[in-house]
Design a protein around this nucleic acid. Sequence first.
DNA 1: ACGATACTGTCCGTGTACGGATCATCCGTG
DNA 2: CACGGATGATCCGTACACGGACAGTATCGT
Lengths: 144, 144
Amino acid sequence: MDQLSAPRFDLLTAPGHLIRRAQQQHQARWIELVGTELTSVQFAVLAKLAAESGSDQNSLAGTLSIDTSTLAEVCVRLASRGLIERKRSPDDARRYRLSLTPAGRSAFEWHTPAVDAVGEALLAPLSARERYTLMALLRRVIEA
Amino acid sequence: MDQLSAPRFDLLTAPGHLIRRAQQQHQARWIELVGTELTSVQFAVLAKLAAESGSDQNSLAGTLSIDTSTLAEVCVRLASRGLIERKRSPDDARRYRLSLTPAGRSAFEWHTPAVDAVGEALLAPLSARERYTLMALLRRVIEA
DNA sequence: ACGATACTGTCCGTGTACGGATCATCCGTG
DNA sequence: CACGGATGATCCGTACACGGACAGTATCGT
């Protein structure tokens, strides 16, 4: 008889678990430094529209890697709070042209320093070199 | 005039975004290799109960780093599918004692190889040394 | 001009995630 | 014993996440 029959599973070696935990850390820092007025996903939408106005939901979902269903909900919430505007494109009646309202732009600009601070705080335990390494490794995992 | 007035935000340097993307990758691999019968969170619960039967929801939530509200829902689903059993503890009528049913144990054992394969697939772009580095860095970020 | 095809956004169902309020139960102290 | 505080679990509201089905619109080939 041996004891190999019962599979074991160690969470500390499971990449999925570590990634989930890291996201929890990130969210905790976000709440602490940015607050609950904007979520990180909502901020990402505002940031993208600040850089490039007039995208439609599909291409925005693509560049932000957010599911189109999910992005639709996010956009509805942002629009209902007056942070973005959704107008049907004159060229293509299926598309929405998304743009920041002035309130949306100022929300984006106002929160940007705190968002940068979230990244700082999250990576605070690491040296500059280690931070770079972590980001580079994550990027390689993602692009597979 | 200068152009510093408009804040920019680069998603590729935002840790939160990279972590979110990594989790998406993980989930995609999970669906591909494990399927939709069990989610990664559900598997984690089964794995923990396989190693240590009789925990209550609170301590389980602690060791798995899952919110107690969330874990309650997960446990209800697992129980309704007959994979775990929830009995009130005789010592303390507030507690549930959680344990695997035979179906739960075999589900755990059956899926374990695929779950290992998910970790493999996710880290496939990295060398063994890089994998170790990534996990170690993530662990340090989490434990802060 | 018209039909097959592709595309945009919505809706539905399920699951994870978390804070806050609530209820029942337990426990330590007076 | 009684009471106040701690604890286990639930419930509610909100938000992200994703697949599949759907309706409306555009486009391309014939």
